[in-house]
């Protein structure tokens, strides 16, 4: 950790080798486009490198910190205008051309999102919308026409269940 904070390149090498797969997995859970995911992976690791001094180990695990950086960057990316735009274009042409799936990842079939699919539908939807799509609980309450309090308690129950599922 000290080596990381001193920006030791070998320490960063280790960090990348150890965590890039997990970080890439969470990015691909949110961003289906491989090219964009690669750009985001770079953005996330550059950001980790740049902000490593602000990481406080008494607050939580390093991986948790990195995971949140990756999730936030990915949600920012899919919510950006350019992404929404290309998404629309893609939907328009989807019927004409077969995408072939070469650069598209099925975000539901990997990583944490795959595990979330094991939850009951009413729980799955809440985790999907809040964690993988970044909607606030207020927004979800309006979208699904469920009271905000219900959204909050149901989401927490969903996360407790998720914890049970990922427990070895």
């Amino acid at each position: 950790m000290t080596l990381l904070k001193q920006r030791d390149e070998a320490a960063f090498n280790y960090l990348y080798d150890h965590y890039s797969g997990s970080v890439y997995s969470i990015i691909l859970n949110i961003v289906p486009d491989r090219e964009l995911a690669n750009d985001l992976l770079q953005e996330v690791f550059v950001k980790i490198w740049r902000q490593i001094e602000t990481y406080d180990s008494s607050k939580g695990r390093l991986f948790t910190w990195m995971l949140n950086i990756a999730r936030n960057a990915s949600i920012d990316a899919i919510r950006s205008k350019s992404f929404q735009h290309s998404r629309q274009n893609r939907e328009l042409t989807e019927n004409v051309y077969d995408a072939g799936g070469s650069t598209e990842t099925n975000t539901d079939k990997i990583g944490l999102r795959k595990t979330v699919h094991k939850l009951k539908e009413e729980y799955r939807v809440l985790v999907e919308l809040s964690y993988f799509q970044g909607f606030t609980q207020d927004e979800i309450s309006k979208m699904l026409k469920i009271p905000l309090g219900t959204v909050k308690t149901r989401l927490r129950t969903a996360l407790i269940q998720l914890k049970q599922v990922i427990k070895p």
Binding site: E9, F12, N13, Y16, D17, S20, G21, S22, Y24, S25, I26, L28, N38, L41, Q42, F45, V46, R61, F63, T64, L67, I110, G111, L112, K114, T115, K163, I166, K167, P168
Partner: peptide, 22 residues
């Protein structure tokens, strides 16, 4: 738990990414 799950389900990025990021 989250970290273990993530490590188990990790997906390796393309090999050229490491050099690009470094």
């Amino acid at each position: 738990l989250l970290e273990e799950h993530a490590l188990k389900n990790s997906i390796n990025p393309p090999p050229n990414m490491k050099e690009r990021i470094m």
